[in-house]
Design a protein around this nucleic acid. Structure first.
Length: 852
RNA sequence: GCCCGAGUGGCGGAAUGGUAGACGCAGCGGACUCAAAAUCCGCCGAUGGCAACAUCAUGUCGGUUCGAGUCCGACCUCGGGCACCA
C-alpha cells in the first residue's frame, strides 16, 4: 500500500501541471470564460497564512470552474509600491527596489509549493516600469479628459523632520520618529475628480447583485448623498455673506451661532489682522488629519466678533465662531449650529454659554432639551414649537421639504444635493511610487510628459539617510527641459498614491505585456472579473477607487463599456487568527505584556497553560490577529514542510465559514493531515481490489448526495460546509459494504470532489484508481436527480411549538392523511386528552405543529 | 465620535422562519498490541432522574409569529473602515 508522502506527491503533480501548461490562460471563444481574482499581495517578505486562505478560496473557485467547462483566467501579481520599502531602506540602508524584488522572489518561491492553479506567465509587479509606465500614460489621458486637477489640501506635517507623514505615522498626534506635535499644513496636490461620478457610483451599486450587502451599504454611506438647504447669512457689518449648507433647515429657528472651519477663507482673512483668530487657527492646526482625530479632539471655538442676521428674522443676530470640528472639505465649510437637535452643537453651546432653543419636541409629552440633544429619526412625527411653513405636527422630512420650499419661494436659499465623497488626492511626497508624469515650466505651466518619453523611470541613485522625498533633492532627475518649449524646467516630484496602482491591475492581467495599458480584444474577452476575493478592509477605498478608475479608463478607451463595473461578484473573506500567549506573572520594563511562542507553552489538558522553561503561568488570548509582536504568526512554509500544502489548504477552508475569521490551531492542522492520510489510505485500499459487500445502491446514493452537497457548498462559498460533507462521505465510503467497482466509482468521485481543495492528493488518488489523464482536466461530477429522491420522510411533531414526537410517512402522502396520522399519535392523543386541537399546522415535508 | 459587521457546547462551527448543536477538535470509555504509536468502534450542552423523560439553553432585555439562532427594537462586548498602512 502506498503511503501519503506529501514531499513526493506534491512536487510531482505540480511538475505534471507545469509540463502540461494546464493553467495557462489563452483566449478561446469556444468556451465560456471565467475570471477569478484574489486581491494581490503586498510583498512584505514572506507569505502569511492569511494569504494561503485567500488564494486557496480563489483556487477552489478557479479549479471548480475549470472542471465545469470554463476557460479560466486566474492570475497573480504584486502590489509593490509603498512605504514599507522606504522604511526598510531607512532602517537597514538598502534600496527599496532591491528589497521589493527580493521579497517578491521569496514570496513566489513560497507560493508555488501551494499548488495554486495560477497562470504565472501573466505575473507582474506594480513597480515594474512596464506597468507604471502604462499607468503614467493613462494619467496623461485622464488629464486630457479633465479628470485630474491640482489644488491645496492638508497633510500631516512633521515640523522637526520637515516631512509629510502618513496617517499611520502619526501616533497620538505626534510624529512617529521625531515625537514632535504634528501640524496640519496645506500643500498643492494632485486630485482625481471622483466626485464628478458620485451619483453614478451611488446608483450603480443597486446593480451589484453579487456583492455583499454590507459592502454596498458601506459604499452608499461613504458617498453620503444628502439633500439640504444652502443659503447665505448676511453680515451685520456688510461684509460678504457667509454661505452655509444644512441638511436640517427645519431647525433654523433653533440656530444659536454660525460656525466656520479654521480653513475657511474668512477665518484665514481674520487671522491676518486678529491675533486671537490667528492663535486659534494655529491651535486648531495641531494634530493629525484623520476624521477620527478631528471628531475625537476637544471641541474648541473662537468668537470672531462678527454678527450675522437670521434669514427669517432680520433683527435676530447670531455670532460667528471659528470651530475646530467643522471640515472645509464638506459642504461650504460653514454651518449654523442648532444645539437643541445636535449633540455636538449642544456640547459646544453649553461650553461657551450660547443659548439653546427648542424647535420641536416629542409628539406626546415632549420636554425641553437638557444635557442631551433631541434627535429623533427624520421620519418620526414631532410637535413643532417654531414651524415656518408646515403644520404644528409633522415629520422632520416634511418640515425639511417645507423649509426648502419656503426659502426658494422667498429667494434667500436653494435646495441642493451634496455628497460626502471627496475628490481623490493622489499626490504622495515619497520616492517609492509611480512618478506623476508632468513637468513644471515657468513659461508653459504644468506640461504632461510626451508619451514617447514614458515611462518616467524612478532614478536608482537615491539615499534615505535624511528625511523627505529623495526625488526632491535629485537634480539630474528633477531638472529637465520642458516637453513643450524645451527651456529648463522641473519634473513633478510627487509620486502616486498606491491605490492608483491597485485600481487597474485587474484589467492589466488581461494583457500584461502589452505596450498600451490594455488591449481591447483581450479586455473584451476576459473582463469582467467574475469573482473577486479579498479582505473586508478594502470594502470602501480600494473598491470605490477601482470602480471610478474603470469608468475613467472607459472614457479614455482603455476598457469596454461593460467594464464600468469591473467586479461582477465580490467575496470578502475573514482573517486567520491564532491564540497569543502572554505571561501572567510579569510585564516588561515598559509595563507591556510579554508574549511567548506557542511552542514554548505547555498545556496540561485541563485548560492550564504554563511556560515550559520557567513554569510561569500563561494567559491565553484566543483568536488574536497574527502579528510579529505577539509571536503568534503561523508560517505557511513550516506547515507545508510538516504536513504538505493540501493540509494547509484543507484546514484554512474547513474550520470556519470563509467570510469569518478562522483560528489556526495546531490540533486542527494535525486533524486535517490525519484525514487526508485516511483518504489516501482508503483510495489505495480500493485500488488494490476486493469486495466488501453487495450494498452498491446504498453507496451509490451516498455518492450522488455528496456530488449535490459539495457542488452546492462550493457554489455558495460554503467551503466549510462542503468539507463537512466530504468528511461524511469519506466515512460512508470507508464503511461501505459494496463491490469494488462501486467503491472505486465512489472513491474516484471523492477525489474529484476534493480536487479543488486538495488538488495534489486528488491527482494521486485519481491515478491510483485508474483515472484517465489529469484530474485537473476531468469534468465535474453531476448528481443523478433520480438517485437523490427519498421514499419517505420523518416529520417532527410539535405540540405548542415544542418537539414531542415524530412520524415517518411516504413522501407523497397528502396533508389530510398526515393530519389523521398526527392526531392518532400517542403523544398527541395524550396531550389532547380527547379534545380537539385549536390549530393544526402541517408544513409538507418539514414539520407538524399541534396548537392546543 | 461616525459608518459597517459578528456574538450558538470545553473549542472551531452546522442549521431555505420549522427536530438547536451536522462535521471536526479536545475529553472519556473500549478493541487491536507484550507495550506504545498508528488505526478502528462507542459516548460526549447544562440540570434533575435508574429510566422513560422533563426543565433550561444560540451575548443581554423586550417584541412579532402556531413556531425565532434566523425577523424587528434597545443595550453590551469584540472586530473592520474613517480618505497618506496596504
Amino acid at each position: 500500500m502506498s503511503r501519503y508522502d506529501t514531499k513526493n506527491i506534491e512536487p510531482k503533480w505540480q511538475a505534471a501541471w507545469d509540463e502540461a501548461q494546464t493553467f495557462r490562460a489563452e483566449r478561446d471563444e469556444s468556451k465560456p470564460k471565467y475570471y477569478v481574482l484574489e486581491m494581490f499581495p503586498y510583498p512584505s517578505g514572506r507569505i502569511h497564512i492569511g494569504h494561503v486562505r485567500n488564494y486557496t478560496m480563489g483556487d477552489v473557485i478557479a479549479r471548480y470552474m475549470r472542471a465545469t467547462g470554463h476557460n479560466v483566467l486566474h492570475p497573480m501579481g504584486f502590489d509593490a509600491f509603498g512605504m514599507p520599502a522606504e522604511n526598510a531602506a531607512m532602517a537597514s540602508g538598502g534600496h527599496p527596489k532591491d528589497w521589493t524584488y527580493g521579497n517578491i522572489e521569496t514570496m513566489v518561491q513560497q507560493m508555488k509549493p501551494l499548488g495554486f492553479s495560477l497562470d504565472w506567465s501573466r505575473m507582474f509587479a506594480t513597480c515594474d516600469p512596464e506597468y507604471y509606465g502604462q499607468q503614467q500614460s493613462m494619467f496623461i489621458d485622464f488629464m486630457d479628459k479633465g479628470l485630474v486637477y491640482r489644488r491645496n489640501a492638508v497633510v500631516n506635517w512633521d515640523p522637526v523632520d520637515m516631512t509629510v507623514l502618513a496617517n499611520e505615522q502619526v501616533i497620538d498626534g505626534k510624529g512617529w520618529r521625531s515625537g514632535a506635535e504634528v501640524e496640519r499644513r496645506e500643500l498643492t496636490q494632485w486630485f482625481f475628480k471622483i466626485s464628478d461620478f458620485a451619483e453614478e457610483l451611488l446608483e450603480a451599486i443597486d446593480a451589484l447583485d453579487d456583492w455583499p450587502a454590507k459592502v454596498k451599504l458601506m459604499q452608499r454611506n461613504w458617498i453620503g448623498k444628502s439633500r439640504g438647504l444652502q443659503f447665505g447669512f448676511e453680515r451685520a457689518d456688510g461684509g460678504e455673506a457667509i454661505e452655509v449648507y444644512t441638511t436640517r433647515p427645519d431647525t433654523l429657528m433653533g440656530a444659536s451661532f454660525v460656525g466656520i472651519s479654521p480653513d475657511h477663507p474668512l477665518a484665514k482673512e481674520l487671522a491676518e489682522t486678529n491675533p486671537g483668530a490667528a492663535a486659534f487657527r494655529a491651535e486648531a492646526s495641531k494634530g493629525g488629519t484623520t476624521e477620527e482625530a478631528l471628531e475625537k479632539a476637544e471641541k474648541l471655538g473662537f468668537d470672531t466678533g462678527i454678527r450675522v442676521r437670521h434669514p427669517l428674522e432680520p433683527n435676530w443676530e447670531l455670532p460667528v465662531w471659528i470651530a475646530n470640528f467643522i471640515l472645509m472639505d464638506y459642504g461650504t465649510g460653514a454651518i449654523f449650529g442648532c444645539p437643541a437637535h445636535d449633540q455636538r452643537d449642544l456640547d459646544f453651546c453649553r461650553k461657551y454659554g450660547l443659548p439653546v432653543i427648542d424647535t420641536f419636541v416629542a409628539a406626546y409629552g415632549g420636554a425641553p432639551v437638557g444635557s442631551e440633544a433631541f434627535v429623533p429619526p427624520k421620519g418620526e412625527t414631532v410637535r413643532w414649537l417654531k414651524p415656518f411653513g408646515w403644520d404644528e405636527t409633522a415629520t422632520g422630512d416634511e418640515a425639511i421639504d417645507a423649509a426648502i420650499a419656503r426659502a426658494e419661494a422667498e429667494g434667500w436659499g436653494r435646495g441642493v444635493t451634496k455628497y460626502r465623497l471627496r475628490d481623490w488626492g493622489l499626490s504622495r511626497q515619497r520616492y517609492w511610487g509611480c512618478p506623476i508624469p508632468v513637468v513644471h515650466c515657468a513659461d508653459c505651466g504644468v506640461v504632461p510628459e510626451r508619451k514617447e518619453n514614458l515611462p518616467v523611470r524612478l532614478p536608482d541613485d537615491v539615499t534615505f539617510d535624511v528625511p523627505g522625498n529623495p526625488l526632491d533633492r535629485h537634480p539630474t532627475w528633477r531638472d529637465v527641459p520642458c516637453p513643450s518649449c524645451g527651456k529648463a524646467a522641473k519634473r513633478e516630484t510627487d509620486t502616486m498614491d498606491t491605490f492608483v496602482d491597485s485600481s487597474w491591475y485587474f484589467a492589466r492581467f488581461t494583457a500584461p505585456r502589452a505596450d498600451t495599458p490594455t488591449v481591447m480584444a483581450d479586455a473584451d474577452y476576459w473582463m469582467n472579473v467574475d469573482q473577486y476575493i479579498g479582505g473586508i478592509e478594502h470594502a470602501i477605498l480600494h473598491l470605490l477607487y477601482s470602480r471610478f478608475f474603470a469608468r475613467a479608463m472607459h472614457i479614455c478607451g482603455h476598457l469596454p463599456a461593460k467594464s464600468k463595473e469591473p467586479f461582477e461578484a465580490l467575496f470578502t473573506q475573514g482573517m486567520v487568527t491564532h491564540a497569543a500567549y502572554s505571561n501572567a506573572e510579569r510585564l516588561d520594563p515598559n509595563n507591556r505584556k510579554i508574549y511567548h511562542f506557542p511552542d514554548d507553552v505547555q498545556d496540561d489538558g485541563r485548560g492550564n497553560y504554563t511556560l515550559k522553561e520557567t513554569g510561569e503561568r500563561i494567559n491565553v488570548e484566543p483568536s488574536t490577529k497574527m502579528s510579529k509582536s505577539k509571536l503568534n504568526v503561523v508560517d505557511p512554509v513550516a506547515i507545508i514542510d510538516q504536513y504538505g500544502a493540501d493540509t494547509a489548504r484543507w484546514f484554512v477552508l474547513s474550520d470556519s465559514p470563509p467570510e469569518r475569521d478562522v483560528e489556526w490551531t495546531a490540533a486542527g492542522a494535525e486533524a486535517a493531515f490525519r484525514h487526508l492520510s485516511r483518504v489516501h489510505r482508503i483510495a489505495s485500499e480500493i485500488a488494490e481490489g476486493g469486495d466488501t459487500g453487495a450494498d452498491d445502491d446504498v453507496l451509490r446514493k451516498e455518492t450522488h448526495r455528496a456530488m449535490r452537497d459539495v457542488t452546492l457548498g462550493i457554489e455558495s462559498f460554503g467551503f466549510n460546509a462542503a468539507i463537512a460533507k466530504l468528511y461524511a462521505f469519506s466515512n460512508a465510503l470507508s464503511k461501505a459494504q459494496a463491490s469494488n467497482a462501486a467503491r472505486r466509482e465512489a472513491a474516484m468521485t471523492l477525489a474529484l470532489l476534493m480536487s479543488p481543495m486538495t488538488p495534489h492528493l486528488a491527482e494521486d488518488c485519481w491515478a491510483m484508481l485508474g483515472g484517465e489523464g489529469l484530474i485537473a482536466d476531468a469534468p465535474w461530477p453531476v448528481a443523478d436527480e433520480s438517485l437523490l429522491v427519498e421514499d419517505s420522510v420523518t416529520l417532527p411533531i410539535q405540540i405548542n411549538g415544542k418537539r414531542r414526537s415524530e412520524i415517518t410517512v411516504g413522501k407523497d402522502v397528502p396533508t389530510d392523511e398526515v393530519e389523521k396520522l398526527v392526531l392518532a399519535d400517542d403523544a398527541v392523543a395524550k396531550a389532547l386528552a380527547g379534545g380537539q386541537p385549536r390549530k393544526l399546522i402541517v408544513v409538507p415535508g418539514r414539520i407538524v405543529n399541534v396548537v392546543i
